[in-house]
Amino acid sequence: MARLNRAETQERNRARVLAAARAEFADHGFRDTKVDAIAERAELTRGAVYSNFPGKRALYFAVLAETAGQQLEPSYREPGRTPREALGALARAWVTRLPLADTEESHGAARLGTELLSEVLGERRTRLPFAQLLQLDALLLGLALENLTRPHPTPRDDLARLPTSWRAWPGRLVRVAETVLTTLHGASQLAAAAPGFLEPFNVVKACEQAVDLDLDDGWTVPPFLTQAEAVDAAWTPQAATDLVRDAPAVFDDGVVAVLGLHRLAAAEDAVRALPAGSRVTAVLVTSEPGELAPLARLVLADLAGCLRQAFPESAWPRLQVVLDESGALASAAGVPAVSDGTEVAVRVEAGRIVARADGRGACHVVASSDGSMPGGPDVGSGPRRRP
């Protein structure tokens, strides 16, 4: 048998650690699982575990992220043609993953994710990214719902008609999405804590009816704390996976937003400012990729798999989401150093970066600029408001 090279050995060991950790967490729960027991089960040293994961919590998030991507039945695909049908299909896909009875078979699966929220809530450095990741999920689901309701989103020119202090965004359904996600995440916690209590039909029905709620939905035009500058630089991104579609990301013309895990809500600022048909790519970065990148994968995988099954491809949001653990994509966008507070946006045209902004409001000012080459009249001006 041919000897494995270093990268192949590391990948094999990582897979063994994940498999062993999953079994230990299912058998004993997160708190009572010992890293030494994981190493023994994987037939590796304790050092080999830590060479792949910085700590037990990072390993826990990675196990749950891998499990979330495997739980949906491949044959289950009944996309809805209306928002109500799509929300019903999304809820059915979600609840089929849950342990709905207290059986020996479901006990391990239920226990595996029981301690997720307590681990997330334990520290601010996980709470804030988790909250922002859920906001990103709500945006993705809201955009998909809007595409079924209104295939051609509100034109960028309509920004001029919005009041400076927000009241409502025409057709926005992100608050409906937030309500649905609250219901589904609550169902997950109850299924784990009280197997047999949850009635899946009621969960599906509640999610379907959420589309009829009047939640006074709206979006605020962000304050312009930065300016877009016209530039002319090469755009040579490396290959990456779009976590929304579970497919290679497409890096053609549009806006690329490099966002730290504390700034994910800013992705909507770019989406709302761009004209219909334009692409936004959110490149997620963090100063703690070992622990927070698996958490990001987990939260996005929980929703994205269900969304792909519940909505026709034509309704999938025009927002791509890429996790940039190495910082290579950020570097390609001219961001050499990243943090969880990063917000940098660039506009790409014909394979060149033609505009860039850094700081709060960067996503909006770049998306609302005209993308012209140096000297373009609208770069950094933001949306024009009428008196």
Rank of each mutant, 00 (worst) to 15 (best):
R3H: 15
R6I: 14
T9K: 13
R14Q: 09
D32V: 11
I38M: 01
A48G: 11
N52S: 13
F61Q: 09
E66S: 02
Q70E: 14
E73M: 11
Y76L: 15
P79M: 01
R81V: 08
L87Q: 04
L87I: 09
A89L: 04
V95F: 03
A101F: 12
D102M: 05
T103V: 13
E115V: 00
E123F: 11
R127F: 14
L128T: 11
Q132D: 12
L136Y: 02
L139D: 03
L139Q: 07
L145H: 00
P155C: 11
L162R: 11
T164L: 15
W166V: 10
R167F: 13
G171S: 08
R172E: 08
V176G: 06
V180C: 12
A193Y: 14
G196P: 04
F201L: 13
E208A: 13
Q209C: 07
G218P: 03
W219R: 03
T220I: 12
F224P: 08
A234M: 11
T236M: 04
T236W: 05
A239I: 08
A249L: 08
G260K: 05
L261A: 10
L261I: 13
A266N: 01
E268H: 11
V271E: 05
A273R: 03
A273T: 05
R279H: 07
L284P: 05
P289W: 00
G290L: 00
P294Y: 07
L300C: 13
P312E: 03
W316L: 14
R318D: 07
V321S: 03
A330W: 00
A337V: 14
S339T: 15
A345Y: 00
G351A: 07
I353E: 01
I353F: 02
I353W: 01
V354W: 02
A355V: 07
R356K: 13
A367Y: 02
S369I: 03
S369V: 06
P383G: 04
P387H: 14
